[in-house]
């Protein structure tokens, strides 16, 4: 392979790449975008590997997106002095994760399960797809993937441009919002930037910029309102519901049989979203039945004065300030009403 193209093109390429990347990064920072973490299987698997800490040193959280916003990990850790391992996955049912932990005989710790009824009692394969991928990734993770994550951990929180949802090539192309043919169902929900900022500990929160921008908040509210149109299946009832509850009971019992402890949480929601949830999933038929079948302690936000006046700005998740209040409230309740040593 004898070729003679000048080597100074290597230097030119390097200069251009460094220049382009730097300009892009500076431009994004000037738009007040902050670096965060991609909440993908790599980050989830990193946390999943931590569940084997002794139960007096760590508590595991599974659920959907609400607990990722509503649990303030820093508050939990500073008050209890124990580690909060966040394994909840956005838009998913925690039943898949519960089964994974139940199957893992080495897990004997404390587990808090966030219940968002529309997802928890959902039978659609879509709600278990992301957890399945994450669990599969964790169990098949190679030494090379672990090493890559260790390097990524150093780079990702330092560069805004590595925000995959908005500033990757596909993120940029998707946000061109080119109209689709009638009938095309777009996978995923098109949340505005700032709605979900995720950190290395998998804490998710809304940015202050987002909270100040009613247009963006209203956009998220409209997305929640559109969900019933996307998923027209009625709430699960009858034998199908019984089967779900028995499966949950089986998994909970397996964890408890080996010394683990399980508590269910109903995190806050507000406004029309809460009304719709109460109508579709009446408490007596779902939440109360879940606790009765599993014989577990449950903490429903509406039962406690400290929690029931918290308001979700976009009807489904708490802002950081209220997440701190919610977390403190949960710790108090757990201390008073369970024998958990926190």
């Amino acid at each position: 392979m004898k070729t003679n193209w000048p080597l100074n093109s290597v230097v030119l390429a390097l200069v251009l790449v460094i220049g382009a990347v730097s300009c892009w990064e500076v431009f994004l920072r000037n738009k007040r975008v902050r670096p965060d973490f991609d909440d993908g299987p790599e980050l989830w698997a990193d946390k999943r590997g931590m569940v084997y800490q002794p139960s007096n040193k760590a508590t595991v959280f599974i659920g959907s997106s609400r607990i990722k916003y509503d649990l303030d990990i820093d508050t939990w850790q500073s008050i209890t002095g124990t580690h909060a391992i966040q394994l909840a996955i956005v838009g998913s049912s925690p039943r898949t994760m519960l089964k994974d932990l139940a199957n893992d005989t080495n897990f004997k710790g404390k587990l808090l399960v966030d219940v968002t009824e529309v997802l928890f009692f959902n039978q659609s394969p879509g709600v278990s797809q992301t957890p399945d991928e994450a669990i599969n990734y964790y169990h098949k993770r190679t030494p090379a993937q672990k090493a890559s994550f260790e390097i990524d951990k150093l780079i990702e929180p330092r560069l805004v441009m590595l925000n995959r949802d908005f500033y990757s090539l596909n993120g940029l192309l998707d946000h061109l919002h080119i109209p689709n043919r009638r009938g095309v169902i777009v996978a995923g929900l098109d949340f505005p930037i700032g709605f979900a900022e995720t950190f290395y500990n998998r804490q998710t929160k809304m940015t202050n910029t987002f909270l100040r921008d009613t247009t963006r908040i209203n956009k998220v509210r409209r997305i929640w309102a559109s969900i019933p149109k996307r998923n027209s299946a009625p709430p699960v009832t009858g034998k199908a519901l019984d089967s779900i509850l028995l499966s949950v009971k089986h998994d909970v019992n397996r964890i408890r049989d080996r010394g683990g402890e399980v508590v269910f949480l109903r995190t806050p929601s507000s406004g029309p979203f809460l009304m719709r949830e109460n109508k579709g999933y009446p408490r007596g038929k779902y939440w109360n039945k879940l606790l009765a079948v599993t014989q577990c302690k449950g903490i429903h936000f509406s039962d406690y004065a400290a929690l029931n006046n918290l308001v979700c700005p976009e009807f489904s998740h708490l802002k950081r300030h209220d997440a701190v209040i919610y977390t403190k409230g949960i710790i108090d309740i757990l201390k008073k009403e369970t024998d958990w040593k926190l």
Binding site: W5, N8, S9, V10, L12, A13, V15, L16, A20
Partner: peptide, 9 residues
């Protein structure tokens, strides 16, 4: 050279 550099970058 500048062409290779630009395409490469």
């Amino acid at each position: 050279a500048w062409g290779v550099g630009i395409i490469w970058s």
